[in-house]
Write a protein that binds this DNA or RNA. Sequence first.
RNA 1: GCCUGGGUGGCGGAAUUGGCAUACGCGCAUGGCUUAGGACCAUGUUCCGAAAGGAUUGAGAGUUCGAAUCUCUCCCCAGGCACCA
Length: 834
Amino acid sequence: MDKYDHKTIEAKWQDFWEKEKIYQASDSSKKPKKYVLVEFPYPSGEGLHMGHLRPYTAGDTFSRYWRMKGFEVLYPIGWDAFGLPAENYAIKNKVHPRVSTAKNVENAKRQLKSWGMSFDWSREVNTTDPGYYKWTQWIFLQLFKAGLAYEATGLINWCPKDKTGLANEEVIDGKCERCGTPVEKKELRQWYLKITAYAEKLLEGLKSLKEWPEPVKLQQENWIGKNEGAELEFRIRNYELGIRVFTTRPDTLFGATYMVLAPEHPLITDIKNQISNIKEVEEYTENTKKKSDIQRTAVEKEKTGVELKGIKAINPATKEEIPVWVADYVLMGYGTGAIMAVPAHDERDFEFAKKYRLPIRTVINNPSALPNASASPLILRGDETAEEPPLNIRGDSLPHSLPRAGEGELYTGEGVLMNSGKFDGMDSEQVKAEITKFVGGQKKTQYKLRDWVFSRQRYWGEPIPLVHCEKCGIVPVPEDELPVTLPEVKDYEPTGTGESPLAAIVSWVNVKCPNCGGKAKRETNTMPQWAGSSWYWLRYTDPQNDKEMASKKLVKQWTPVDVYFGGMEHTTLHLLYSRFWNLFLYDQGYVTAQEPYTKRVPHGIVLASDGEKMSKSRGNVVNPDDVIEKFGADTLRMYEMFLGPHGDTVFWNDKGIVGVKRFLDKVWRSAVSNYPSPSGGGWSKVGRGLHALIKKITADLEAFKFNTCISAFMEFLNKNENMAQADFEVFLRLLAPFAPHTTEELWHQLGYRDSIHQQLWPEFNEKLAQDTKITFVVQVSGKLRATLEMPTGSSQAEVKAKVVSDKNVKKYLADKEVVKEIFVPDKLINFVLR
RNA sequence: GCCUGGGUGGCGGAAUUGGCAUACGCGCAUGGCUUAGGACCAUGUUCCGAAAGGAUUGAGAGUUCGAAUCUCUCCCCAGGCACCA
């Protein structure tokens, strides 16, 4: 064979690997372990796409590398198969999701095998398998028993197209994460997981994740959104209840000239009969409800609000009576749903005060503002108690006590207090605690993270294993009755009323209470798709266990995951959720690692060559199956890596692939023409360069710089087309994780019987990896004037002696005085002229 | 608006972290092989210039013997968050 026939060869070795089971991870191995994880795919009808190839190839290459390094590597795969597409397909075509899913799994599995992935198929899991979701339900029950799952009625995100509630994390830019439909707010009874109880631990844990990329950690940190401040109470005039507010700036309390309640704030209904313009207020709050989140939070939008006439709050610091407003720029979901407004020191309050002519009182001195008010006559300072009152434009003195409505200056920084009674002259940063104490408030930590809306009004998900009993209330299904299996339904169509299609299966819904035996109904909501993936890496360690989620011994043996390849888009979804579940299971003593993933390696997205997302409607999809048909898996894998750095967005471009194909053909030709018969052993004359190659490939692999590995291979082969056979064998071993089929075939052609993937990774000798000669850079005043071949380790004197005789350099040095000479060993010599 | 990345030939990208900018690949050009080729092989290919030489890493400044790399100002692109008090 003088040409590499990828179809025959790749199929042949895929069968061989499967038969020999060389990629199965052994629980009883004496070798040190490594756990390589890739995000398991959703088996869609379209099959796997280029986007899957990127992390899977990286994980595969890495697994192969670690196996050759002598580790027992666990590289498992499974199916995240609950979810909407299968269900929507069922609605349309009346095919049970179980059936279509099985078909899609079959196809995706064929694809993964054709890519030459070294997965351990004996550990395959499927989230829709009752033997799997039994344990998803079991974990839910543990959360429930720990008080971390609760039912509540509240305003939640609702996707009108998918007809289900959504978690906060599933709303991207105000739209449904799955289908892109603008999300609405709906008042619904929902199950929540109290992820907020783990806010601090999730934040704390990030600090221990030394091998996570900073941007990923930062994004999670921002999502959790910790904010330290104070909770203060403002009394309402002639009323027993007060208004509690959260603020990060208690130091500006003296500047709080009004208050704002969120439109949903319960106080508005409580004091309804004291509000003289209640009609106007209710009209406003009703209007707000109708608006979508997108409309409500649009930045360009001008702020609106209505004053609660007849209501006055009392600023606890100044004892002044201040107006109370309702405005939709205050959100019910954060803090207490009410704020103290300090227009002089908060941008939003400033804007609002300007519009509605509310008083703006400066209480923090802006150190960068000009001290003399007359120097900037347009800026009015409010009720400063300076001895000489500031001047307005006409030069008149201003009234002393009250700030002029709607006029003033905005300054949001820290500084020295003014107009703040006994706190005047103190530093704003230091005075925060004191002022909080002065008005009887408390220090308070707020998080932006919200509890996880955990129920979905859809069919194709794990049933929530709870029962509603008329007498006992909510009762968990006993653990020995798990799993609560999904019943067959006639109609998958979501009802849209906030009830799941399961509610219509009377025979399934009506049960006896496990507690009292009385009449009870099953919970009919299902879990979100994120449930199954929140613990799947644990199941891989012990996938057949029907007594436990996974045996503690095996969990301890394999976890944490050493390296987890996946997408940036899961940073505040799967990655956050699974860390939460793991932390919980850790606290309960079921898992041994506090953090599930030691290292996270994100990949860039694969876009079409037109720079757009690959999509059927655009017609720019490149199907990996077609590329494999034409070029083979090794070429596809290597080209995908060669496109660009693993973390970068890459554009698929059909044109460049021939470069990688040519390289592999060249490897093939080189082998077939140079080494027709088996022999081997020892190092040869190109050994030096080869040591350098081993060093380079090893280092770049460890740093996930796959693209430069490929260049290094190409460069080496270009220079050493006819290397000695022993060297070629080393070259093949280095290339094996990248081109598993080609290298396996050539390895066997060289006479070996074992798989190349079970060979050891080549070691390099540091001394031999160094060049014996190096090219010196000769500069005159920092400009390159010559280069010079010198033996490694040459001294300054040796280099100089050789350099000054160089014609070119002489020309530049003639009649000039050398002020300074810079010598960098094995690199450069620079003559600085006057 | 805020927070992250990033900006290098015609294109994808490389540069041992302050020391030969443009490796490797695509494309293109010329030549070879071929009945033919959009196959393969060889050579060349940052820009200006006939050459000597000069210029060049988004723009501008600075530090340094020396800057793609460090500092400052500005512009642009991608991603995340966004009326979060």
